[in-house]
Amino acid sequence: MNTATHLRTSLADAITADGELADPAWRDAAASVPRELFTGSYFEPVPGGNETRYRPVRPGDDGWLPGIYTDRTLVTQLDGRVRADEVTGDEPVADSPSSSSTLPSLVLRMWRQLEAEDGQRVLEIGTGTGYSAALGAHRLGDARITSIEYDPVVAASAASALAAAGYAPRLIVGDGLRGDPDGGPYDRLVATCAVRHIPLPWLHQVVPGGKILVTLSGWSYASGLALLTVTGPGTATGRFLPGHTSFMIARPHDRPPRPTLTLLPGEERATRIDPAVVGTWTGSWVAQLAVPAAERMGEGAAQILWDVSTGSQARTAPAPGGGWTVVQRGPVRLWDRVEEAIAAWQAAGEPHQEGFGISVSAERQRVWVGAEDGPGWDLPV
């Protein structure tokens, strides 16, 4: 029986079995909120070729409803403008994802990690489809949830879905990086988009002792999920959490447009690290901290770094006699900085992101390894 109620209950049971829903109230939210109202049509990735292409899946199509109640992220918009229900025909399209419905287990895990309690007010950055806001409203009450969406088309769709599902949180269309200066203070803030640094308005809109849960990312698209405690107006400290969490980066924080990459000659030398390490989850994170204005491409021994702001380049390759070489050019020696950062991380025992912390003030935002006085890197503010 593939009715929505049955599929929704089965998904809630599966997430509970995985240990994400220890709180019965969140399990009830997962079993009650109709995800199909929030996703509607969505895109399926089509394998093959050099670029990912997407096929629209619409209500009534084979697999539409079971797909919605599979624990996965569903792409709902491409290129900041194309929605699945607007695509004519069934031919795949090749734009980049710009909005999505995050896999339910991650949404619920983040609500749990946020440590939101009865009576607290929560500010959500990135309404998206509205599914996360609906879960929060079900658990904490409509009056306790405010959600901000940057894209007015996405926001309108979420508002309609929330109303259809019977929820009425406070919704704002605007720049979530500015927060909600007229609606605070808040006890909790959760971001369903990634940022390059913590927006300072958030630190003034969450009460001292309040929590901020946010994914830090960058132009190389490495990610780490951090839980911060606000220590005072404009200041916070926190730790990164276990697991592997990634979100689309907030559009104002995304890299600027760039021309097609042309690899140019430069100075060549042997590398001091295996380039493949920057292709691992935490290795790529460390490399991004070291060169936050760079975009990373390639895999394995063949890595390419391109500094978006200066045009500096670094590219690695296997050396004929063993080991690897790097060619660098431009005012920023990208690979030198990456080697230094990777060496510091390796000396600390190569911890996953849960071994990292973050300190934030109006003057500086710093990510560090181990302890606050350990090796660290400033975020681009």
Rank of each mutant, 00 (worst) to 15 (best):
A194C: 08
M110L: 10
Q346L: 13
D151L: 07
T52M: 14
P97G: 04
F356T: 15
A270I: 01
D23I: 01
L78C: 15
G376I: 03
L200D: 15
A163E: 14
A17K: 02
A194K: 06
S160E: 13
D118F: 05
D28T: 14
L140E: 02
R366G: 01
S217G: 06
T262Q: 15
I198V: 15
V308Y: 03
V82Q: 15
I249K: 10
A362R: 14
R144K: 13
L37G: 07
A14V: 08
L261V: 14
L334K: 09
I15G: 08
A191T: 14
D95F: 12
P375D: 10
E115V: 03
T229F: 03
S312K: 03
R258E: 09
L114T: 11
I68S: 06
P66M: 02
E117Q: 15
A194W: 08
T146E: 04
R178S: 13
E354Q: 13
V214K: 07
D175Q: 11
A294P: 05
V369Y: 03
G89D: 09
H204F: 12
E372W: 00
S246K: 10
G136C: 05
G232S: 02
R239T: 13
L11Q: 13
L65R: 10
R364V: 08
G243D: 11
E363Y: 00
L289F: 03
E268M: 15
Y69P: 07
T146D: 00
A159T: 11
D95Q: 15
G60T: 10
P351T: 12
L261M: 09
D23P: 02
V122Y: 05
G243S: 02
G67W: 04
G89A: 08
T129W: 00
A168F: 05
L334Q: 08
L65I: 00
V214W: 04
G184P: 12
G330I: 12
T231W: 04
E339T: 13
P259N: 11
T215Y: 01
R170S: 09
R315H: 15
R329E: 09
S217L: 01
A164L: 09
S98G: 06
G183N: 08
